[in-house]
Design a protein around this nucleic acid. Structure first.
Lengths: 248, 248
DNA sequence: AATCGGATAAATGTGTTCATTTCTTTTGCA
DNA sequence: TGCAAAAGAAATGAACACATTTATCCGATT
């Protein structure tokens, strides 16, 4: 183990994963003793984990009334993209003033890595993880170059918004991926030349388009992205009904 | 009691206040036993409070090594203003599209309240709290009108950065206050007319100037704003060292 | 019959205790 | 004398148990 994970951190990660993957549905009550038993830990570290997630925004909490999986509205999701676009555009403006040779090389390497992964003319399933990692690293690198720690902090926390996270965005159309990666090319070039405003403009459009595309995908394949607590269509698994649940 | 404050929430508030007011110094170790005894509670709710503050960013935490009062760098503080400027400018652009008559009235009332408080030609001590409240309400109102919940969330969390919070900014110069309040006038008017870009520009300058002014004040009266952990001057108040801690 | 009220049950909040990790001190050895 | 390793002390992490609050159910009253 590289990091001495404590029970609390372990539980936090498991719960975050369960929520972001949709295993736990928005609005679900998070019973402490049941969850504790499920995870094989006591209530003490579980409560710590839930407290953390509550501050993160993934779960909501009311005194003496327990924790719930937070429900995100459409406004939350699109708002997340809006703010991300603004913050990362800002990062570009700032980063352009801090470009060094090593910075240029870093961005170039990341872009080249993307080129390599897209070389086959399609995003192969075995390359999906690597591509996502490259994508995250590219955006993170730009934000780090900006020298403003808050940008990365906030963008990071926006990735906890279910449908707004890079992890759940499925690009079904290869042309979209290519176009998106071409944005990376342009951003890297613009930054290398110190053209901050231009890089910012591309970045803003880069992210705004991601929202537009998500919007479209949402209409086409809603069940794959958002599992809203729809009253008539309970998706799958357990439902957040107030009556007694037969199982579990 | 209007709200059934629990021990945890109470402790959270007390600790937040203690940190923001400078009672607890950056870098201070937060011993659980002692703090619990000081606050008259057990370690369990205290840990919950510390966990919350850790996620908020006011304290740092390492597994098995405890909590510390987070140390903010100059980059953190100026970065907080930068991001605030960007986010609140964004709020103006968005709010301009959502202006209604009630919105116009709300902003006008807040501005009028400010006029009333500044009427004497000086910011009287007894009006200081009311003015700050008005200021916070004005900015909050604009962000709410933007319709993007994340803007307010993030700006709110930036107010937890010690010197970047409105609460610790002391305006020593009345002309600065007048000028600042005049910005509010202009922003309200611009928004009322739907001039989003103009309002955004004023807001950006409004906040950027606050940073510039803080910078100046910092040089003039450093001890009033930032209490950096100076190795030779233990500041004041309660001990940061347990028995004999020679160095560090 | 409906609603208000109280009693019971369930879940959360907190105090306490024990286990584990980390830090300090001391002791042994080169 | 200096360093290193081990033993002791102290602090954190987790489990357990108790107290308090909230929810549910049943019955009485209007």
């Amino acid at each position: 183990m590289s990091e001495p994970h404590t029970s609390t951190e372990l539980a936090t990660e498991k719960l975050r994963e369960a929520i972001l993957s949709g295993e736990l549905l928005p609005g679900d009550r998070l019973h402490q003793d049941r969850l504790a038993e499920m995870l094989g830990i006591s209530r003490t570290p579980l409560r710590a984990a839930l407290t953390t997630l509550a501050q993160t925004g993934l779960v909501s909490y009311e005194s003496n009334r327990g924790f719930y999986v937070r429900e995100f509205s459409i406004a939350d999701v699109s708002g997340a993209f809006q703010v991300r676009a603004e913050l990362e555009a800002m990062a570009c403006r700032l980063a352009a003033a801090n470009m060094t040779d090593t910075a240029r090389k870093l961005l170039n390497d990341l872009v080249a890595e993307g080129d390599r992964l897209l070389e086959p003319g399609a995003l192969l399933p075995e390359n999906l993880g690597a591509y996502r990692r490259m994508n995250v690293n590219f955006h993170t690198a730009v934000m780090d170059l900006a020298g403003n720690p808050w940008i990365r902090t906030f963008v990071q926390s926006l990735h906890n918004v279910p449908a707004a996270s890079d992890r759940v965005i499925m690009w079904r159309d290869f042309r979209v991926i290519e176009r998106s990666h071409d944005d990376h090319h342009r951003i890297a070039r613009a930054l290398a030349k110190g053209q901050g405003e231009r890089a910012a403009a591309i970045m803003r459009e880069h992210i705004t388009f991601a929202l537009e595309h998500l919007d479209l995908q949402l209409k086409l394949y809603p069940q794959d992205f958002l599992r809203m607590p729809s009253p008539d269509k309970p998706a799958k698994g357990r439902k957040a009904s107030r009556s007694k649940r037969s199982s579990e």
